Amino acid sequence: MTKLGFVLPDEFSHVSLEQTLEFARRADETGLHSVWKQEASGSNGVATLAAVAQCTTDVRIGTGVASVYSRSPTLLGMSAATLQQLSSGRALLGVGVSSPPLVERWHGMAFDRPLRRLRETIEIVRQTTAGGTVEYDGEVFDIGPYSMALETTDEVPVFNAAISDANRALTGEYADGWLPAFIPQPSFSSHVTDVRESARDAGRDPGELTVAPWVPIAVDDDPDRAERRVRYLLAQEMAMGYNEQVNDYGFGDAPDRAHALFRDGDRGAAVDAISGRMVDELTVSGTESDVREQLQRYARDGADVIIAMPSMDASVAEIESLIDALGRIDDSA
């Protein structure tokens, strides 16, 4: 049965840390599968999730996503093991290669051999979270031997936020789950098949790989208001560089226009530049009944968990209403 998760709004949504924790508590109370904390130039994702672990009891907590450039593999493993202990086994480690602007401008590192770095990071994280001796001799990292004192009682699932074909293949070979974002719904099923085939080719059980797409979602009694919110989120994400990804799916010049307009400060025009086809294929919005029906398409096409991305211009009340609606939809699934 497909479950529902939620991306916690943060500073990019003009939400305080205390309000972020309140959203996590609400998601826990409504029975959602998981909450995920993004990390760019705002609050520290792992530290925030440590606080979330202390104020929730059942909801799973995931980094969404931790860059393999911003922390060493050993520190990522230690962070995952710590979250696992603090949350009594609810931790999920979402990792990704990030992007050249973030890696080079935010962290002052060269965006070099990203997929090799990702693969080796996952392998080192698994050693680190298992405890005992860590030793790894790779092409990017030469680590150990050293002993880990912090162990987890359960393995921490590693999710990869893969976009490219090669990275999706790596997901099937090495990760426990896939965190795709902005994959058009008509293309989603074929990508799921590719990831699971990669797992099968690597001698793994493809059914054990968790597919968890991030999807912009808005629920409102007025479908036009809901659509406006997901349009805004798409415009902002295009400005953050996702226009280059979605350009591969034939949306014309709409992604690039939204990117340019939003970055120039004309956010209204950027929202209007988002095409109807982009809304239909990249987002889910409408009344609660509409959203329930649209989410069923992802479930049919192979999603195990659907992670809702709230609009970055949604009010606190609108976000609370979305969490409640997701809880009702999840219960009826």
Rank of each mutant, 00 (worst) to 15 (best):
G5Q: 02
F6T: 02
V7L: 10
E11V: 08
H14T: 14
E18I: 01
E18R: 09
A24P: 02
R25W: 05
R25V: 07
T30C: 11
E39N: 06
S41D: 10
G42A: 12
S43Y: 13
T56G: 09
I61Q: 10
A66L: 15
S67G: 08
R71W: 11
T82V: 11
T82L: 13
L86Y: 04
L86W: 04
S88T: 03
G89T: 04
G89R: 03
G96F: 03
S99A: 10
P101V: 02
W106A: 09
M109L: 09
M109T: 02
A110H: 08
L115N: 12
L118C: 12
E120S: 03
V125M: 01
T133N: 11
E139R: 14
E139Y: 03
E139S: 14
I143R: 10
E151H: 03
S164K: 00
T171C: 10
Y174H: 13
L179F: 12
P180Q: 09
A181D: 03
I183R: 06
S190W: 05
S190Q: 14
V192L: 07
R204I: 09
W214C: 09
A218W: 04
R225T: 11
A226L: 06
Y232Q: 10
M238F: 06
M240W: 12
E244I: 05
E244R: 15
D256W: 09
D256T: 11
R257I: 07
R257N: 14
A258N: 06
D264A: 15
G268V: 08
V271P: 01
A273K: 02
M278I: 07
V279A: 05
S285N: 15
S285T: 12
T287Q: 11
V291A: 13
V291S: 11
D304M: 07
M309K: 04
M309P: 00
S311V: 06
I323G: 06
D324T: 14
R328K: 13
D330P: 00
D331R: 13
A333Y: 10
